[in-house]
Design a binder for these strands. Structure first.
Length: 260
DNA sequence: ATGGTCGCGTAGCGA
């Protein structure tokens, strides 16, 4: 069972690129972020032609998340509990039926939080805390669970090309890194870190300033695994090649392979 | 060098 996460920065602007990648990589499940469209504008038919069923939590212009699955999608829930006034489409969760056991999967688009001296950063930290509390409840189910997405959090200095340049940024502030660790302390494993003997790899390169050409990247797209999912983990791939495709997203897919 | 890159939507915001 291959489960991927990918911030696509508009599903419709990116559609040919996404379809080409899906056809080649052929993951079973894909968690998408920043689809930037309402549910009705999601290219349901185009992904169905490649064998994917879609669960969509869309929003006009901004945000928007979705889950694609070749193995069916059940028990879909949209939105993160903990704030009834939050109207931003940043969370969708579903169950993927499996041959031996089902996988619960969430597609997460955590708020960016910049600039840090505005209410945006407070919103980010509150959202992170809501996610931690929800994850605590899911953890107690003792299921294979993958919390996949764009966390807008750089865990360590090794995960950014120039830590000094990012000091003070909402993606690298101590409070942000602490919130990411607090999520893991609920009993989750950073899938990338669980594979030993490897250098850090980046998942995002800004469109500006030739960041990709200079390899000025950051690692912010993560798979957080429950113990039952971590037990089944066989490998993790960060697909750098996707950043060199035509009309690329500024993020690349992260793919986890699991025994099922 | 007083710009620089995208997407949305058609100005200026968000990333």
């Amino acid at each position: 069972m291959k489960i991927a996460t990918w911030n696509v920065n508009s599903i419709n602007a990116r559609l040919p690129t996404i379809l080409a990648w899906l056809e080649k990589a052929a993951p079973d499940v894909v968690c998408l972020q920043e689809i930037k469209c309402v549910d009705e504008k999601f290219p349901t038919d185009a992904v169905a032609e490649l064998g994917y069923e879609a669960a969509v939590h869309g929003q006009k212009t901004y945000n928007g998340v979705a889950i694609l699955s070749k193995r069916g999608i059940e028990d879909v829930t949209c939105g993160l509990p903990g704030d009834d006034d939050d109207e931003q489409a940043r969370y969708i969760e579903a169950v993927i039926p499996g041959e031996t056991s089902a996988f619960r999967v969430a597609s997460i688009y955590l708020p960016n939080g910049n600039p840090v001296d505005t209410e945006k950063y407070g919103y980010k930290l509150k959202w992170f805390e809501r996610l931690r509390m929800h994850a605590r409840g899911l953890r107690a189910l003792e299921e294979p669970l993958v919390l996949a997405g764009d966390y807008n959090a750089i865990p360590r200095p090794e995960d950014v090309h120039d830590p000094a340049a990012w000091e003070g940024d909402a993606l690298f502030r101590p409070e942000t890194r602490s919130a990411w660790r607090a999520l893991l302390w609920e009993g989750f494993t950073d899938a990338f870190m669980a594979v030993d003997g490897r250098m850090s790899q980046y998942t995002f390169w800004d469109y500006q300033g030739g960041a990709w050409q200079k390899d000025h990247g950051i690692r912010i797209d993560h798979l957080a695994l429950s113990p039952q999912a971590a037990d089944r983990l066989e490998g993790v791939e960060i697909d750098r090649k996707a950043r060199a495709m035509e009309k690329p997203s500024d993020h690349v897919p992260v793919i986890g392979a699991f025994r099922d």
